[in-house]
Design a protein around this nucleic acid. Structure first.
Lengths: 150, 150
DNA sequence: GTAATTGCAAAGGATTTGCTCTGGT
DNA sequence: ACCAGAGCAAATCCTTTGCAATTAC
């Protein structure tokens, strides 16, 4: 175990008082476009590759940094796949939700479960914990992939 | 995370016909001892360090390999913390359960929530998915760690 | 004796960081 | 001009692999 209690990058978007401090760059624009086009969860590297395919000149580092910011702002959802890679996808709803993701093709469906959030909060509080957070991912085979299987 | 029909390295314990194919080594023994002593989730590196502290001569590689096997056999539970590291702990109950884990010290409490399992199964099925599985981790600060904090 | 196991060193793979260059405004 | 943002290369970090040396049985 390494780090952590206090960490948390301390977001500073608009903390300073002044408005937008974000520049509209060609790269950011392109990334947004790709995110808008891809409905499935994809890794940063995938997304970078896709951008390159489209002929965009953009560095992998930029993709990572951009996605990080978008994730912090809640503009994209993130999840870790079984190999530990972080996957990103543009967020559709702004409310807290979870996903049912296809193990085979990556397609995913958003689902809400207020009961779960409460339950998590509840059991953790009961155990004396504070500052509670949780992660929940559901994996399975989507209709399409289930069909074409061995 | 439990089932997973498709993968599984095809264990060969006792497949050949002959008996025990597993050797009782000093290292394996020591690792077991440490796992028995530590009630919290710990990273492989932590466990290795602990072993060294105890004066054991054992390589990090062996710890990783050993833990991998134990995890496959269901002898230890694994989970990924927020940084992506894999944490291990000897499994206590055989029933499906989840954990409320301290972000700071790693201590964890097992909790059960049949309702959650059903809900997960339900929403996924409703979305047309099959062969469903899920992961749920709750993080927070345990009473002790919450105290000694800013 | 023989094969399972160890463990060092090196490889891998994802993500981050240092630092300089570029392009918006 | 100025400064946020881009990006390359190098650095990190956890984890796995190659392969020779050990060791249990």
């Amino acid at each position: 175990m390494t780090s952590h209690p206090t960490e948390r990058p301390a977001q500073q978007t608009s903390a300073v008082g002044r408005g937008t401090r974000v520049r509209g760059t060609r790269q950011a624009e392109a990334l947004n476009q790709v995110l808008a086009d891809l409905p499935e969860f994809r890794s940063a590297q995938d997304i970078h590759a896709e951008l390159r395919h489209r002929g965009e000149r953009i560095g992998l580092t930029t993709v990572y940094r951009q996605l990080q910011v978008l994730a912090e702002d809640g503009a994209v959802d993130t999840l870790r796949d079984e190999t530990g890679e972080t996957l990103y996808r543009r967020c559709e709803t702004s409310t807290h939700h979870h996903h049912v993701t296809c193990r085979s093709c990556g397609r995913s469906v958003e689902v809400e479960g207020p009961a779960i959030e409460h339950w998590a909060e509840h059991v953790a509080t009961e155990a004396g914990f504070t500052d509670i957070d949780h992660t929940l991912e559901i994996f399975g085979l989507c209709p399409d992939c289930a069909g074409q299987r061995s």
